[in-house]
Design a binder for these strands. Structure first.
Lengths: 232, 232
DNA sequence: CGGAACATTGACCCATGTCAAGTGTCGTGG
DNA sequence: CCACGACACTTGACATGGGTCAATGTTCCG
């Protein structure tokens, strides 16, 4: 399978670390040579309502994907990290905002080439379908979390998801940076920044983690943290 | 576009009433002749963890799609109504439960035939991809609702979504049955049954709707209801 | 050094959850 | 036809988790 992931792997590592079989269908090699674009922190990669032009692969940095209500309330649907692909969807208008949370580099591939790949390689469309299915599963997991879990459970699952992502990438599962602000985390988990902050403080008090800096997390007891995250 | 919709069209009618072009790729005609199955109320069409075997098109009735946490908290991700297709996703295990909320009839199509169609018709995989993209967009809309809106706003948007579905199907947008229980609605919107019930009562008091029976809704002022639903 | 942006902490409040009756409504069996 | 139980829904009283508002820290950068 070619397409690593559409956006953030919220909580289903199995669904998001695909088998990576076979040679490139031209998609990956096209991406490799696609134009590199630099996006500053807070700059939009694209916004809801934009005409869809490209799909992007994150090379470095991080992108927040979110929707907003008329009065400004915001729901972050996920964060995209290096290796993730964002921008897939219907080829009409963007239905979501994609904004860099830190300086980011992406490779841009015109969407028109997707249809082209699909006609050249009959299995490519099916691969896109599978990628979207994975993304949908991840979004549903997030919805289970924001819809049913307590603040503590939400924050714990969020940290565990980052930990798992690190483990998957061969990095230290007990230490990572938070590229996004408390506001981003709050809007992702459906909490206010104050609640996020207080929950971090509680976790510190429980000796489950340390915050060397406000955006650096050292997990001290992942097993216990998993218990705090509640079922699953 | 062949595939009408994967599950419930929560709040993006435009994304879910596709253009319905061209002749069947074999998919629709296969569905038309596929085996009919009767599912009793509360019976599972499939459950999380099941081996995927079929995709289903709802003929009559209604299906709830949901996930549960270990301790039983439940998040309904959507309701599937006649015409909707459920069961698309990765072809490994089901990642969601599908349970009838009332006696339901579905047509069953073995998933194996999906890959087959995809190889026979190069554009079929791409259509599946587009269908999943629509479903993802709908799920994100729901997440925006459950993550950010108040109880009143959630219930109002829920009712409006049903109203729109009726209008789309040429039925009375101001009157419909609620095939599901308050529990289902609550688990869909991330509220308790008591809150759902109280919110209905408030809407009655505001003269925005009547409940001839507890599962029959008559909307009296859709415009005003839309205001209650908040932005968007 | 100064200011802006972000994060933390505290005090208070309220929307929604929890718990507990009470009220239909429906289907079954006497 | 009625009595009964099961179930779903409604309503009320109360509790509380997390939101709101406000003040204070911290970090970073010009």
């Amino acid at each position: 399978m070619l397409i690593q992931s559409i956006a953030t792997s919220y909580s289903r590592p199995s669904a998001l670390s695909p088998t990576r079989t076979t040679a490139a269908t031209g998609f990956e090699s096209s991406l490799a040579h696609a134009q590199l674009r630099r996006v500053e922190a807070k700059e939009f990669l694209f916004a809801e309502g934009d005409q869809v032009s490209c799909v992007y692969r994150i090379e470095t940095g991080a992108i927040a994907l979110y929707k907003v209500l008329a009065d400004g309330r915001r729901q972050v649907m996920g964060f995209a990290y290096p290796g993730d692909i964002v921008g897939l969807g219907l080829d009409e208008e963007c239905t979501i905002n994609a904004q860099a949370v830190k300086p980011t580099r992406v490779r841009c591939l015109p969407v028109s080439s997707l249809r082209e790949f699909a006609t050249r390689d009959p299995s490519f469309g099916f691969k896109l379908y599978e990628a979207m299915a994975r993304e949908l599963a991840a979004t549903r997991d997030l919805m289970l979390t924001t819809g049913q879990r307590s603040a503590m459970e939400r924050v714990a699952s969020f940290l565990l998801a980052l930990s798992r992502r690190n483990r998957r990438n061969g990095r230290d599962p007990a230490f990572f940076e938070l590229p996004m602000t408390r506001t981003d985390i709050g809007d992702f988990l459906g909490l206010t920044i104050e609640t996020v902050s207080r929950t971090f403080t509680k976790l510190k008090a429980m000796q489950l983690l340390k915050l060397p800096h406000s955006n650096e997390v050292k997990l001290l007891d992942i097993t216990e943290l998993a218990k705090m995250a509640g079922g699953e």
